[in-house]
Design a protein around this nucleic acid. Structure first.
Lengths: 208, 208
DNA sequence: TAGATTGTTAATCGATTAACAATC
DNA sequence: TAGATTGTTAATCGATTAACAATC
């Protein structure tokens, strides 16, 4: 599969996937790029172009088969290859993520939750015990998680990055205030950065 | 002020602002576009170009004055005009947001928290009482919040949007799984959409 | 003044949109 | 077959980068 597809295209895939999920749920079996564009406030041209980066899943004169297209995009997004995942930080944020996100449906398998505050360890969140962070090393050496969700402070996130990479983690979903970076080409970091999002809102409100 | 500056430029401003905050904290008084580019993994050209959309804050032969530049970008982002804000949903997510975000420093004044679950109302989070959502209408009619932070379910978020607009809310920071949209040109919605972010991570991990 | 670095214009690059031949 | 809609190429648009004159 091509590895050089541009970031704007990739960022649109989850939107397409969400839309197809809804169509599928509504029992719609077929859709044209034009109809899809209308639903997504996009253009038929862009949608066809985007799909064709991955090889075109439609049929001329017919359009796209909804269940098939959903499956294809799901596969492209990696939903079919479960990635072992740990979450660090069982405070409000960590619990919110564990409760709101259906990891399994997104291609991730949550296998461990870690926390440094003693009082929070031992509890069970969504069926997963909250372990002491001191046990994380051993746990990783036994279970080989590939992804870490960071729900800790800026400082903690910065300090956790390199050790986790050494333990074999290649993907980070970072909710801390730190903008994490690495020169390691095998590692991908998705920084969420709430504050940047809030400042974007602030800017646009100031323009009204 | 220009109202037609492109979205990629705006999205970079919070990064610049964070960097300048750190430089300022470190006591650095002066910086060139080249040095800034190095720190931000950007280019001197882009940084100068970006600043010049707003009128150029540097001095030829010298560079930029850090405290002044920080203040300018802060002003552009609207940090100096506090916007009255309410937050709806005092579950884990709502509490995480209230605790992690320093609203005051970002140009927002949190004046109310609302929740539908009786058991959670009456508590105090960061000095702000959690009120029953039934009191929200009256509260808005008395206090005129301009921004709402939505930490509720997809369904609830969809149902809250229009009523809140009618109550005078013009900005939404939406953490629900719904991708909210409105045709109202006076309203700006910042959708966070955790899942899309997670799928972006999934895609990139699958490419390795 | 000489050196440095901006502000700004011009050139390039990449992404989006339009067009249409292929084909179901 | 005729109509519809894709896949794909070409044209346009916008964003980034390069260049350099202005000037501190």
């Amino acid at each position: 599969m091509k590895n050089n597809i541009s970031s704007p295209v990739i960022r649109r895939l989850p939107r397409y996937y969400r839309c197809l999920l809804a169509l599928n749920k509504a029992g719609i079996k077929r859709i044209s790029s034009g109809e899809l564009a209308k639903k997504l406030d996009s253009t038929a041209s862009q949608i066809r172009q985007d799909f064709n980066y991955f090889g075109g899943f439609g049929q001329q004169g017919y359009g796209y088969n909804v269940p098939q297209l959903q499956a294809e995009i799901g596969r492209i997004l990696g939903l079919e290859t479960p990635k072992k995942t740990i979450l660090i930080g069982a405070g409000y944020l960590g619990r919110a993520i564990v409760n709101q996100i259906d990891f399994e449906k997104k291609g991730f398998t949550l296998i461990g939750i870690f926390e440094k505050i003693e009082a929070l360890t031992g509890q069970v969140v969504k069926g997963i015990p909250v372990r002491n962070i001191n046990d994380m090393d051993e746990f990783c050496k036994e279970n080989f998680p590939k992804v870490a969700v960071l729900c800790v402070s800026k400082n903690e996130a910065e300090q956790l990055l390199e050790p986790l990479i050494r333990l074999g983690v290649t993907g980070f979903w970072n909710f801390s205030q730190a903008e994490l970076t690495t020169k390691n080409q095998n590692v991908f970091i998705e920084n969420v950065l709430f504050s940047d999002s809030l400042l974007n809102l602030s800017y646009h409100l100031n323009q009204k």
